[in-house]
Computed example of a mutant assay.
Amino acid sequence: MDPKPHFETLARYNRWANRRLYEAAAPLTDAQFVEDRGAFFGSLCGTLNHILVADRLWLERIEGHGPKPSSLDEILHHDFAGLRTAREAEDERILSVVAATPAERFETILAYRNTAGVPHELPFAQVMTHVFNHQTHHRGQAHSLLSQFGLKTPVLDFVYFLLESR
């Protein structure tokens, strides 16, 4: 089985889920957006920035170039509008990277260094799975933060994306 179509679907799902999440977060005030709510990355701002940071780190490892944040908790954008614009651009970048990846690469090993400089090697397809799973994990945290503010939270389940995409 060629894994590439599966990852292309995950990239489209990823964009869909992020758009829904950001749309739900749009009514927050600036103060609410940065308020520390005790989440792993503190606030919704910290959580959403972490997702962007991790995507940039992984895409830099995959492509060999691009932005390379210095730490996993770096705040790339303090404002919601700037972060939302950056998220949209990164989702398009992910779609492009997956589309440009030859099917054979999914069967290779990716050698990289983590943020501490420690070398690692992992199967490329598993790294790509991690990229999407990581976003899903932290989107769940962001979803919970939105519900704490009393906002209507969107359905983000993959199956709903599939049903809408038919």
Rank of each mutant, 00 (worst) to 15 (best):
K4G: 11
K4F: 05
P5N: 09
P5T: 12
H6F: 15
H6E: 03
F7A: 11
F7L: 13
A11G: 10
R12L: 14
R20H: 14
A25S: 14
A26V: 02
F33H: 08
E35W: 00
D36N: 15
G38H: 03
A39W: 03
A39R: 05
F40K: 08
G42S: 11
S43N: 09
C45S: 15
C45M: 15
G46H: 08
L48V: 00
L48N: 02
L48K: 06
N49V: 11
L52K: 10
L52H: 13
V53P: 10
R56H: 15
L57S: 01
W58P: 08
L59W: 12
E60L: 02
E60F: 03
E63N: 10
H65L: 01
H65T: 12
H65V: 01
K68Q: 14
K68Y: 11
P69R: 12
S70W: 00
L76F: 05
H78M: 00
H78L: 11
L83V: 04
R84W: 00
T85L: 09
R87D: 04
R87L: 02
R87V: 08
E88M: 04
E90R: 15
E90F: 02
D91W: 03
R93Y: 05
R93G: 00
I94E: 07
A100L: 02
T101E: 06
A103T: 14
E107A: 15
E107I: 00
T108S: 15
I109L: 11
I109W: 03
A111G: 11
R113L: 02
R113D: 03
N114F: 02
N114G: 02
A116C: 03
A116R: 14
P119C: 13
E121V: 10
E121C: 12
F124T: 10
A125M: 10
Q126S: 14
Q126E: 14
Q126T: 13
M128R: 06
T129P: 01
H130E: 05
V131F: 14
V131I: 15
V131L: 15
F132C: 13
N133V: 01
H134E: 04
R139H: 04
R139K: 05
G140L: 09
Q141T: 07
S144K: 07
L146G: 13
L146A: 03
F149Q: 14
L151Q: 13
K152G: 03
F158E: 09
V159R: 01
V159A: 01
Y160Q: 08
Y160C: 03
Y160F: 14
L162Y: 08
L162K: 12
L163F: 04
S165F: 07
